[in-house]
Design a protein around this nucleic acid. Structure first.
Length: 907
RNA sequence: GGGCGCAUAGCUCAGCUGGUUAGAGCGCAUGCCUCACAUGCAUGAGGUCACAGGUUCGAGUCCUGUUGCGCCCACCA
């Protein structure tokens, strides 16, 4: 076993820490003072409770790529960071901590509990921020905001009061999604429906006289206790005789009417539906339509209340079991069958959500949705990929009012006060009135007062016993103001003027409804302008099988671990490379090796360029003054193509395309070919060529680093700083991150050089192929003859290159092919290479190689001949396509002839 | 029930507006520690582009349908 050479692997740890600190300290993340249209992004604020996961890593890498790209293009750039107070999530975290200390928030009381949350935020809230810094996110950290800080709270209050004044916020008694664990209402978007293997039970409701009655089907038998009717389809012949009859509710023995409604599906279950307006949205609507009462049978914790009679105090799911047993005993349980259903869960704690009738605050969304729709249809807002437009519009078209009150403590307090005397009485009555169709409360009559401060006395009764509404606002009620609240709105600040509207929003598809749509509505409503013109929706991080990556599922990959082990650049490059236009990303640890190896390759390539003694001594000159070799011209031309391609890709948010092009250029062109040739050129007898090579190497490395910088900022900064200053693009701050993005240099494009060079590449590859095919020992030089009717000059001037890269010597260039015994020949374009292998040729192997080529060629020729013989093709295809086909067929024929010649020589 | 995405080499995925018998990384095979890099170098094997129709001179690429997987939305109790 041979000793491994000392590792020259790139170690990002020290480098990344150093530059992260330097950039921030030097203030490079702040927007430049110069004029010009600023490029602004507001971060999707992560939860204060958050720790960096792959979704964050993806989201923020892409934003940072755009931000750094635009910064280098010379625009003043501002990326505003911040965190979200995340009401329910944060309250849960602190409550869990208290539980660990055998305490709970009710013991502490509201005020002291809030103090605890702030203390927690003080201690742990900056975790995610530190982690974003490690990722390299070039946010202006001096402008960091928090959705509960003073300015943003003022924005929230202003927004609430404005909407209320304009009649778009109301208080109503309504059926909402209730999480019995969090003990709060949730908006429709906060409920996640998940399939559940449940049962469908058929239960008999006898008629008033105790006769047969009717059988109903239900998935939630416990709600039977709150039933107020049974509905059937008016045309259903089975139940015609029951119309307007009464039925006897099992167990409670209450009488409920049979009503008819065309909405009942005759084919489902038994065609008879029990109606529980207080615990089912469909039933609630039906109850309204038919003027039925609503009977609540559960309390806020999901336990059965007094109305549940014998089941009072039981948990809702225990009650279900008990009721089923009792029905069974009474002979009223007719049938039990398996049934796949879908049940709503709280998105924070996974508890099964209970529809519950309760008083809440709502935003009337229809007028706002209209603004959101206009954003796309009139104001030119775009989604990338475009398909999300439809998702967005469909949601807006079917929007429902937004329940914004939450029965928790951590959040923005609602600026409303109620009268202890008037309000409870009113709400009681409202519970009944709500069912007649009017859910909005008459605030005056209810003794509810909305305003920035508590009123002196109740408008309704004149009493002074007022209390502030205990509820807080939905977290998203602050998030939707983010694009302007971060700049100080409602104040008319300089930042607001300069940076609103923002440019691009980069986010994940799962918050299009929660956040994107609402920001658009708020932006247009409060600011009269779109908050951003472009919405870039990236993919969701998933693991095999399409599941979301999540810590609880134990299938997560920790981005910080990747950073620790392989560096932020590795993480970023790998992610960018995988992020193709909105496709979901399936990750595995192995996929990060691509980025790691790439960074390492770049590092070592730079070591080669910078390491030569001659490198430091060169005086950089304009390329125009340097004598360029073919290889120089070729690589410069390839650079220009890459520059153009990467710029275009980033302009179109095609991150993976940009990364792919950079990878291919750096690795397969610059390193694999140009550097190998540059090693020779450096040693050239011609001092002009040697010096020119250093200049090309230097300039090219410098520009390539700039192209790479948005994706891999740390390593590029480090290497760039190691370049002699004379080679670096000018940057006032002396940092690559503020250096200019490479400008187009069309004169570098050299099609002729690319063509000539690729002929040499083909030749070298062909010889290597022969060497490998006949097992020529790696170190052994073999003689090569090239028959070259054309291009002999090109070959002659690149003898050294051919010898070195193909492992051949001596090389003879002639007009005709001489094929001594023991040689193997192969055509390369119109050249023929003849490799002298002496004793190494195995005739069978040689024949097989050629036969394989011939087979390949025959196939290609046949397909072309067929096409060209086809009259339809000849008459309908564009002339240039036909010409191209003819030319390429001719080439194939010639190549075929020469392979055949080779085959003959073997015999 | 509706909408969307995906189905391309053993694995993970590129393939923009249809035009040379399809590309990458990993893995595999063979040979290499060649003085930037073994996190590497060279060469190679490996695909009837899910299936069935259609449009077209020409389809991985466009259209229709089918199947499978995934996601989102929706008040069949």
């Amino acid at each position: 076993m041979i000793q491994k050479s000392p590792s020259a692997a790139y170690d990002p740890r020290e480098v990344e820490a150093r530059w992260a600190a330097h950039w921030e300290k030097a203030g490079l993340f702040k927007p430049a003072e110069r004029g010009g249209d600023p490029f602004t992004i507001v971060i999707p604020p992560p939860n204060v409770t958050g720790i960096l996961h792959m979704g964050h890593a993806l989201n923020n890498t892409l934003q940072d790529v755009l931000v750094r790209f635009e910064r280098m293009r010379g625009r003043p750039v501002l990326w505003v960071p911040g965190t979200d107070h995340a009401g329910i999530a944060t309250q849960n975290v602190v409550e869990r901590k208290l539980a660990g200390e055998k305490r709970d928030r009710h013991q502490l009381g509201r005020e002291r509990f809030i103090e605890q949350v702030w203390a927690w935020k003080q201690a742990h809230g900056s975790t995610i921020v530190k982690q974003l810094k490690r990722l390299g996110a070039s946010c202006d950290w001096s402008r960091q905001r928090f959705t509960m800080d003073e300015g943003l709270s003022r924005a929230v209050q202003t927004a609430f009061l404005t909407l209320h004044e304009n009649g778009l916020i109301y208080r109503g008694y309504y059926l909402v999604n209730w999480c019995p664990r969090c003990r709060t209402a949730l908006s429709d978007e906060e409920v996640q429906h998940e399939p559940l293997k449940g049962k469908l039970w058929q239960i008999r409701y006898p008629d008033a006289a105790g006769g047969e009655g009717v059988v109903v089907a239900t998935t939630r038998p416990e709600t039977l206790l709150g039933d107020v009717a049974v509905a059937v389809h008016p045309e259903d012949p089975r139940y015609k005789k029951l119309h307007a009859q009464k039925l006897r509710l099992p167990i409670l023995d209450r009488l409920v009417p049979v009503i008819t409604d065309p909405g009942v599906d005759r084919a489902f279950g038994t065609g008879a539906v029990k109606i529980t307006p207080a615990h089912d949205p469909t039933d609630f609507a039906l109850g309204q339509k038919h003027g039925l009462a609503a009977i609540r049978v559960m309390n806020a914790e999901g336990r059965m209340n007094e109305a549940a009679g014998p089941y009072r105090g039981q948990d809702r799911f225990d009650c279900r079991e008990n009721i089923l047993a009792d029905l069974e005993a009474a002979g009223l349980l007719v049938k039990t069958e398996d049934y796949d259903t879908s049940v709503g869960h709280c998105y924070r704690c996974r508890t099964v959500v209970e529809p519950m009738l309760s008083p809440q605050w709502f935003v009337e969304m229809k007028p706002l949705a209209k603004l959101g729709i206009e954003a796309v249809q009139k104001d030119g807002m775009t989604f990338s990929p475009e398909r999300w437009t439809k998702v967005y519009l469909d949601w807006l078209a079917n929007i429902r009012d937004w329940c914004i009150s939450r029965q928790i403590w951590w959040g923005h307090r609602i600026p409303a006060w109620s009268c202890r005397r008037c309000t409870p009485a009113y709400v009681e009555k409202q519970a009944i009135r709500a069912l007649s169709g009017n859910q909005r409360m008459d605030e005056q009559a209810a003794g509810i007062h909305v305003g920035p401060e508590a009123p002196e006395k109740c408008r309704s009764c004149g009493g002074t016993d007022l209390e502030q509404d205990p509820d807080v606002l939905d977290t998203w009620f602050s998030s939707w103001l983010w694009p302007f609240s971060v700049f100080g709105w409602p104040g008319q600040t300089a930042d607001l003027k300069r940076f609103y509207p923002t440019s691009t929003l980069v986010t994940a598809p799962d918050i299009i409804f929660f956040w994107v749509a609402r920001m658009v509505m708020a932006g247009k409503y409060f600011m009269k302008r779109l908050p951003f013109k472009q919405v870039v929706i990236h993919g969701v991080i998933r693991v095999e099988g399409g599941k979301k990556m999540s810590k609880s599922a134990g299938n997560s990959i920790d981005p910080l671990q990747i950073i620790d082990r392989m560096g932020a650049d590795t993480l970023r490059f790998s992610i960018a490379q995988m992020a193709s236009e909105g496709q979901d990303l399936y990750l595995s640890e192995g996929r990060f090796l691509l980025g790691r190896n790439f960074c390492n390759k770049l590092w070592n390539a730079a070591r080669l360029v910078l390491g030569a003694e001659s490198f430091g001594k060169i005086a950089p000159a304009a390329l125009a003054k340097v004598r360029l070799t073919l290889a120089d011209k070729w690589i410069l031309s390839r650079f220009e193509a890459t520059r153009a391609g990467v710029t275009e890709a980033l302009d179109q948010f095609r991150f993976s395309e940009a990364a792919r092009q950079l990878y291919a250029f750096v690795w397969n062109e610059f390193c694999d070919w140009y550097l190998e040739i540059a090693k020779l050129q450096r040693q050239s007898d011609d001092p002009g060529i040697a010096a020119g090579t250093e200049i090309v190497l230097g300039l090219l490395l410098e520009k390539t680093l700039r192209l790479l910088h948005p994706i891999i900022p740390f390593i590029t900064e480090e290497l760039w700083q190691q370049l002699p200053e004379s080679l670096r693009a000018s940057s006032a701050e002396n940092a690559i991150m503020t250096a200019p993005w490479p400008a187009p240099e069309t004169p570098l494009t050299d099609g002729e050089a690319e063509q000539s060079f690729s002929r040499l590449q083909e030749l070298i590859t062909q010889v290597r192929n022969i060497r490998a095919g006949f097992r020529v020992p790696a170190g052994r030089k073999v003689p090569l003859t090239i028959a070259a009717p054309n291009g002999a000059d090109l070959l002659r001037s690149h003898l050294a290159v051919i010898e070195r890269l193909a492992g051949v010597h001596p090389v003879e260039i002639g007009g005709k092919a001489q094929r001594p015994a023991g040689s193997v020949a192969a055509p390369v374009g119109d050249w023929t290479v003849i490799v002298q292998l002496a004793g190494l040729v195995d005739l069978a192997v040689a024949r097989k190689r050629i036969e394989k080529e011939l087979q390949n060629l025959t196939g290609r020729m046949k397909s072309k001949q067929g096409r060209l013989k086809n009259d339809a093709f000849r008459s309908k295809a564009p002339a240039e396509v036909i010409e191209q086909e003819e030319a390429s067929l001719k080439e194939l024929e010639q190549e075929m002839a020469r392979w055949n010649e080779s085959l003959r020589q073997i015999r």
